[in-house]
Design a protein around this nucleic acid. Structure first.
Length: 449
RNA sequence: CGGAGUAUAGCGCAGCCUGGUAGCGCACCUGCUUCGGGAGCAGGGGGUCGCGUGUUCGAAUCACGCUACUCCGACCA
């Protein structure tokens, strides 16, 4: 992409409504625009990152055996009356009336609808286990939206729903999601630490939240320090195998949010030098809730003995529109965002130090073509701007590598590569620059973990 | 929903106390010179001062009401 033809409205100053660093940087980097309280447009750069985050989530969900579909945002109140939640959900639910005065709602979650789909088509225990998910916009009329897209009223959520014959099956499904979540966050350069959680209004008795540690996190968390760099399950993980050992291994180390903190246990189970109290951003939440919905909504299958069995369900959420700021909170410096390659909007910033100079333009145009041919996603800063402005933009929007080309280096046939995260620079022959970048970028794409 | 604040050009702000019809920096437009870390000079465009009512000869400025947004608390991916 040539920057001169892109839509990238960067700001030098942060709009005053932004309080935390990720919100400020998302506004300054031209990723989002606020439209109302808790409501944001995703501008091209932000949307590109969001799509990469979504893609990683999809890959890991698919790998774990979940199947993607898409349900509508606007739902009928009828289904919610069946489960009893139409009245129970409260003011967070945005209620709408259509022209026929039918009661509708903008979905805050989809347990009822997925249960309806399930009960329509699935009749036999032989069709289990089943895990269906979608990634769709949700609306929760939060009392106080804040922190940009970290807590917005309209937000994107991946919600998966598992269906099993019994508690054992459902627990296995829960473990699969648990492992998929560890891998998902890891691929985005995050450490998502599972913590025992309260099940809240959705109900249930097996519930874990995944938290990313960050100073600006909304929850106080208490954990065993070894969880921070614990190696995650590899690509060889067989999701049909028994994943209980992985789950037990991870949950054997103490971790809890403040509302679940048991100080005595924390002190007893974690050696003093390993006790870490920090703040966390909740980026995922997984539940097992048994037959809470299948019973009232009559979602049953015929078992081997011919009897009707209410299915055991779980639901599994990840917030992509929250993950984007979470990644920024975890990875930035004074100059701006530092994207991990796996979610970076562009992998390389090609910086033409002297746009308008025929030789420099020719060299950059040629390199831009080579970068594309090498499969690298590059943003080519071809604007007629001082070098400083170009470096500042590339730093701000967090592109992992900068390929810097100017007349001075060209005299010796050289270019420079700057690594955004470390600030390290290397000078190398023009002819080898693209191959070098490819060698740097490809291993970090993390499409294989 | 309780408490606190803010609202003046696209963004950041001054002006308000002590009413006299709006200004600064950045951004934007034109021209020239520049270009190795957010360029310089010259010229230029852009504002129903959040909305409404009132006070006054006169309101960005004073009073009252409303709205939007932000922050602090209780809830959530």
């Amino acid at each position: 992409m040539r920057l001169s033809r892109y839509f990238l409205p960067v700001l030098k100053e942060s709009p005053k409504e932004a309080e935390i660093v990720s919100h400020k940087l998302m506004l300054r980097a031209g990723m989002i625009k606020q439209q109302a309280a808790g409501s944001y447009s995703w501008l091209p750069l932000g949307f590109k990152v969001l799509q990469k985050v979504v893609r990683i989530i999809e890959e890991e969900q698919d790998r774990s055996g979940a199947i993607e579909l898409l349900m509508p945002t606007v739902q009928s109140a009828e289904l919610w009356r069946e489960s009893g939640r139409y009245d129970a959900y409260g003011k967070e639910m945005l209620r709408i009336e259509d022209r026929h005065e039918r009661e509708m709602l903008y979905g805050p979650t989809n347990e009822e609808m997925i249960t309806d789909i399930f009960r329509t088509y699935v009749k036999s225990y032989k069709d289990l286990p089943l895990n269906l998910y979608h990634i769709q916009w949700k609306f929760r009329d939060e009392v106080r939206p804040r922190f940009g897209t970290m807590r917005s009223r309209e937000f994107l959520m991946k919600d998966a729903y598992s269906f099993d014959l019994d508690r054992e099956g459902a627990t296995a499904a829960f473990y699969r999601m648990f492992v998929a979540y560890l891998r998902t966050f890891h691929r985005m350069g995050l450490v998502g630490i599972p913590m025992r959680a309260d099940s809240g209004p959705i109900g249930g008795d097996l519930s874990y939240e995944f938290h990313v540690l960050a100073e600006t996190g909304e929850s106080a968390v208490f954990l065993h320090a070894d969880l921070v760099d614990k190696p995650i399950p590899s690509i060889d993980t067989d999701f049909r195998a028994d994943l209980a050992p992985v789950f037990n291994d991870w949950t054997s180390l103490y971790a809890a949010t403040d509302e679940m903190l048991d100080e005595a246990r924390f002190a007893a189970e974690v050696p003093e030098e390993k006790r870490l109290s920090a703040r966390g951003i909740e980026v995922g939440h997984i539940f097992y809730f048994g037959t809470k919905y299948s019973e009232p909504m009559k979602a049953s299958v015929t078992g081997p003995d011919g009897s009707a069995i209410n299915v055991h369900m779980g639901s599994y959420g990840i917030g992509p529109t929250r993950l984007v700021p979470a990644i920024i909170e975890a990875s930035h410096d004074e100059a701006g965002i530092i994207w991990p390659v796996s979610v970076a909007p562009f992998e390389v910033a090609l910086i033409n130090l002297k746009a308008g100079d025929a030789a420099t333009d020719a060299a950059c145009d040629s390199l831009y073509g080579e970068l594309g041919a090498a499969g690298l996603d590059a943003l080519y800063d071809d604007r007629d701007q001082p070098a400083g402005a170009k470096f500042a933009t590339a730093d701000l929007i967090g592109i992992p590598y900068q390929l810097i080309v100017g007349p001075r280096g060209l005299r010796d046939g050289q270019a420079e590569i700057k690594h955004r995260a470390s600030g390290e620079r290397e000078t190398l022959p023009l002819a080898t620059a693209v191959a070098r970048l490819r060698g740097l970028v490809e291993p970090q794409r993390r499409d294989k973990v």
